[in-house]
Amino acid sequence: MATEETDTNGDGLADALGVDSHSAGEAVGMPQLDFSSFPNQIFWLVITLVVIYLILNRIALPRIASVLADRAGAISNDIAAAEDLRNKAVEAEAAYDKALVDARAEAQKIIADAKADIQKDLDVATSHAEAEIAAKTAESESRIAEIRDGAIDSVREVANDVAKEIVSVLGQKADANTIKAAVEQRIKS
């Protein structure tokens, strides 16, 4: 790439440092400042860099880039597939939920029906029982009334007799009708 200009650069550096290129590093000091080996190193460096560049640019980098792109593609495909599966799972879950809700509603309906039936039966039985109870009550009340009426008549008779006796004992003639009216009045009050 830049062999000539870098060569001159190396020599220029040597000149600038005021060092004789061939005497500096032979015996003493740093091999790095031995300018006689510079052309050799630069030559092989340039060759090496060009070779590496060609290898990278022609073979390695496109291949790695394509592998990375393939992987990214595969990953995004897989993600899309996973997304699909997830959606399917969500749908299945929704269907299952719906079935569950339906079943629950059905069960609710059946329970309600059964309850209604039972209620009906219960109502019928209750009304029967109530009618019976009412009949019995009425009968009992009529008998109680009869007994009471009987009792009142007896009381009246007894009261009339007692009053007539009391009046006759007091020595007066008692009018039956007057006594009866007075007793009647007393019982009423």
């Binding site: 870098t6 190396g10 190193q41």
Partner: peptide
Amino acid sequence: TSHIAVTGVMAMA
């Protein structure tokens, strides 16, 4: 890479 010639060429490039 410990040689200034090598690194110098790369840096100069």
